[in-house]
Amino acid sequence: MIEVSGLSKSYGDYQAVAGISFSAQKGEVVGFLGPNGAGKTTTIRMLATYLPPTAGTATIAGFSVTTQADEVRRRIGYLPENPPLYGEMTVREYLKFIAEIKGVPRSATSKRIEEVMERCFVADVANKLCQHLSRGYRQRVGLAQAIIHDPEVIILDEPTSGLDPNQIIKIRQLIKSLGENHTVLLSTHILPEVSAVCDKVVIVNRGRVVVESQLSQLSREKSLEQVFLESVSQEDSVDAAA
């Protein structure tokens, strides 16, 4: 479903992503991990067709993110790092707008809106203006926006940041259930989250993939935390030695 090969992004001289490759199968939930500044958001933005890569290729559902961006856009749901809300709209108005531009059939729109508000636990703020929502609710509306058109591939940049512990559990359950018939790529800093919802983990550091593994294979030998710390610090020491 997602095939990434040698994907790179430079901002001027600075290489934020340096040849990342990984893949995600249909129905897999992939956790995208890495320290701050590792290049997660940059990679995700390239996959979501927001930023053009400087090198490499990526395909989503078989379509190239560079040459067939329109096809990719039709098939992804995307929650950016900051939920992209229009403050002056109510949650319901906002979701209706999203349904329109994502091509949800007119007849199905209001049903989908209610469904998705239910699933993302935002039904109680349906008539509130987005600008008056708390951080956690903004995040949940952002998530509702990403799944309203039932996309094949769902890309989430830190979907549980800003949520209270109770919501974190509920949203994880939601993501896990989405993973049953969608492909989900999510970035996060919370390691237990990966263990709880992901089938596969990709760890990046300094713009490179340092670990790509099925979760089931990992945990037999070491805990995810050990793997994460080792892979990230190893890179650091290699760098320091050079």
Partner: peptide
């Protein structure tokens, strides 16, 4: 400024 540009650009809207 609000980040909604990222939403529009990544939507199937030309």
């Amino acid at each position: 400024r609000k980040g909604t540009f990222e939403l529009l650009i990544t939507s199937p809207v030309s």
